[in-house]
Design a protein around this nucleic acid. Sequence first.
DNA 1: ATAAGTGAAATTGTATCCATTATACCCCGC
DNA 2: GCGGGGTATAATGGATACAATTTCACTTAT
Lengths: 210, 210
Amino acid sequence: MLNLKPVKLLPVREQAAASLREAIITQNIKQGETLTLESTAKALGISVTPVREAFQILARDGLIELAQNRGAVVLGMTPENIREHYQIRAALEAEACRLVCENGADLGEIERCVRHLVSSGSENYGELNQSFHYNIWLASGNSRLSRMLSELWNGLSMGLRTTRDEYAKKSQAEHEGILGMLRARDPEGASALMRKHILRSMEDMLTRYE
Amino acid sequence: MLNLKPVKLLPVREQAAASLREAIITQNIKQGETLTLESTAKALGISVTPVREAFQILARDGLIELAQNRGAVVLGMTPENIREHYQIRAALEAEACRLVCENGADLGEIERCVRHLVSSGSENYGELNQSFHYNIWLASGNSRLSRMLSELWNGLSMGLRTTRDEYAKKSQAEHEGILGMLRARDPEGASALMRKHILRSMEDMLTRYE
DNA sequence: ATAAGTGAAATTGTATCCATTATACCCCGC
DNA sequence: GCGGGGTATAATGGATACAATTTCACTTAT
């Protein structure tokens, strides 16, 4: 069967959410600002109903807070926020590693990401890094876990394209360590390493946003 | 300051979601059924706008699935569903235990739950059990983690009031074990026990829904 | 019998309208 | 001048109606 990109677009509420998400993460919309339904609807060129739904989505993602009868205030990257975010990610990604070890999933895609990252330097690190994590989520066999992690990623992690070389190198080494544990099918080891990996990048992030 | 219940009620969309949630969990609405906006709005005595949002909430909770242009189909308690749910809970609750140990939070409320559960037998087990877990989430100091676990609980765990004595006894013993580890401020021990506790109740659940 | 065409029913998005509520402003008394 | 209270304004939350799109089932034609 042909493998073509579907013509049908995502529902408008999703597109609206995506647009707002990008604007918030790139700080195009600044922290503390409050978004009104009507003005954002106008800015997006749509009506308010899907905007309302988009607000729900963003609130779930932790990017905005819906104040009673007062609209959506954009949440920033407070240290507290970052810490909470990464602690949750650490727990879930560690669990994903554990599950991968236990269900003996194929590691092909994951290995490809690591190799690719080695060969291509830290140039398009961001993309490959996400790919690495994403494929672990998939391999966990827990679709809901995978969904939750995607949402978390959208909520914050994606916002910070780390381009610093030193970081990329350190991270790459850790990826290789995790892959090794996954190959050895060692649940405890793999999850522990992943935990450490994520908590370390949390510390990295905290030094920049405090 | 006086501690009174706020007069203001929850938004209608939340009430609608709660009502539907209960109906689904008690199997008042059967698995596989599809809900239409208008009929559920009529049944709830509200208009379709909040129902639409309630559907989003329930979809996020994993109780229904929103098919493109085709409505909301009620998801059942498939073994796969249960497994995914409990694996995630295990990871997050274990993390909560770890955090409680690390931040040295006060264990007063948690201890009260355990003591209360001992004295009152397995009569109102369900409520006290939830209280025990809930207070651990709170003590973790991670508000977002707490919210996510509440949502998960609403999504499935709450549905199955375990009244079987043997289960309550086993569970109670495990609670005491976890509390012991929390008192000792042993992150690894506490999180490992909590993990086991939840995965065991998963097995328990699976024997009933397979 | 298979494939296309048709139509009913539902969601999705649009457009308003009303009620409730939160906030800011102003005025008044002290 | 300062604080408290009332009022005005603006935005949400929800209701209602409607257009557009999509899905699915049923029918029909080859």
